[in-house]
């Protein structure tokens, strides 16, 4: 059934369409104003790549490519988890540092004012 020429042509057309869609995902990742945009588009690219790998495993008649798809889905999930958690931590640290600096500034200004008096 997969040897049929109709199936092969359909697979190739669908692969080309998915590649074009991937390019638009990449565009969103480049343009995205926030870091959440980029992460979201990375997640979408992962989903599309899984579908592409599944189609390829039928097209080339290599069943081991499905293992690759499983590992790929796991890795894309892990990437999103890690990056979002690390970014939240870094942002909170940065915020705390800024607040401490502002507090120091206020204290310093008060000292200067008292010295003038």
């Amino acid at each position: 059934m997969i040897n049929n020429s109709v199936t092969k042509a359909a697979f190739i057309i669908i692969l080309v369409i998915l590649a074009i869609l991937l390019f638009f995902c990449l565009l969103r990742a480049v343009r995205g104003p926030k870091i959440a945009d980029r992460l979201m588009s990375v997640n979408m690219i992962g989903t599309m790549i899984i579908v592409i790998i599944c189609i390829l495993s039928l097209f080339l008649k290599e069943s081991y490519l499905m293992d690759v798809a499983l590992v790929y889905s796991m890795l894309s999930f892990l990437a999103v988890v890690l990056i979002s958690k690390v970014y939240m931590g870094v942002y909170a640290e940065h915020k705390k540092k800024q607040e401490e600096e502002e507090k120091e500034k206020i204290v310093y200004e008060e000292e200067v004012r008292n010295g003038d008096d």
Partner: peptide, 12 residues
């Protein structure tokens, strides 16, 4: 070094 990071997310 990451004390401020939200930990123990119940969904995760």
């Amino acid at each position: 070094d990451r004390t401020l990071e939200p930990k123990k997310d119940p969904i995760l």
